[in-house]
């Protein structure tokens, strides 16, 4: 088939040295993607849905306890979202092909194929897939806020980060209309409208989104930074989300978490 489509490979670079853990990405994602309201009982049942979340890890606890010097304690933050793995462990286990890898590097979930076996969530090492244990409900008036470009998922459906595919689709239309490849400008907070909601919100520019296939894009350059690493690299999932190490004056390889 003859196609004029540009071949993108969407990816993200997360610079941990910039992240303050402020939760702007988390709330922005919930507003954009019609994520059900996480009530107290959802947290207590460990069934809160956050496509992107901030994890906090403690360090230096033992040293602080030993010396009595509290300033040795460190809290570190890391945003975790679907890693859009090239070798995604969630994909081959879906019996109905509801999850697959598309030609733009996205790990996609097709809601109306999903039958809720939850095999994928079991197989995901990053715990970024969420099952709708209940029919999501909003008070009538809050329906006004729901994003018409994002499906509201029903009970029994698996859902996850899409890199805000609705924005990328819109960008794709612009690409076709203008005959110009989407570049960094379109994903920049100052000039573009197509970056995923989390990256668009991030006050410190921790989250940078772009096209890994474009050798000049910010993500391509940043991914080559010598601080780069992949989350749980040893299991070989080949994520499209690249992390840059946190810079620490007392950094050591013996970090324990």
């Amino acid at each position: 088939m003859v196609t004029t489509r540009v071949r993108h490979k969407w990816g993200m670079v997360v610079d941990l040295d910039r992240c303050t853990g402020c939760q702007a990405c988390v709330v922005a994602c919930q507003a954009e993607n019609n994520i059900p309201i996480n009530l107290e009982q959802h947290f207590l049942q460990r069934r809160a849905i956050e496509w992107i979340r901030i994890e906090r890890y403690w360090e230096g606890l033992e040293e602080a306890e030993k010396t009595g010097d509290l300033s040795k304690v460190k809290a570190r933050f890391i945003p975790i979202l679907c890693q859009h793995c090239e070798n995604a462990p969630c994909e081959p286990v879906c019996p109905v092909y509801a999850t697959y890898h598309n030609n733009e590097g996205l790990n996609v979930q097709i809601y109306n194929r999903c039958i809720g076996t939850r095999y994928c969530v079991n197989n995901c090492p990053y715990q970024v897939r969420f099952f709708n244990f209940w029919q999501p409900t909003w008070p009538e008036s809050l329906h006004n806020q729901l994003n018409p470009h994002v499906t509201v998922r029903t009970r029994g459906i698996m859902e996850k980060c899409t890199f805000c595919v609705q924005r990328l689709r819109k960008g794709g239309r612009k690409e076709v209309q203008e005959g110009k490849r989407l570049d960094d400008k379109e994903f920049d907070a100052q000039s573009g409208m197509f970056a995923p909601a989390c990256a668009r919100a991030c006050p410190t520019d921790t989250l940078v989104f772009g096209d890994m296939n474009d050798p000049n894009s910010r993500v391509s350059t940043m991914a080559k930074d010598n601080r780069n690493y992949k989350l749980l690299a040893s299991i070989g999932t080949e994520p499209n989300v690249i992390y840059l190490k946190k810079v620490d004056l007392d950094a050591s390889d013996a970090a324990t978490h």
Partner: peptide, 22 residues
């Protein structure tokens, strides 16, 4: 949000948040 299960003190694959000196 955080779970209540204690993590092993050392993960096989190393730290989740890796650090480096400036």
């Amino acid at each position: 949000f955080e779970g209540t299960v204690e993590l092993p003190t050392q993960l096989e694959e190393g730290a989740i948040i890796k650090t480096t000196k400036p």
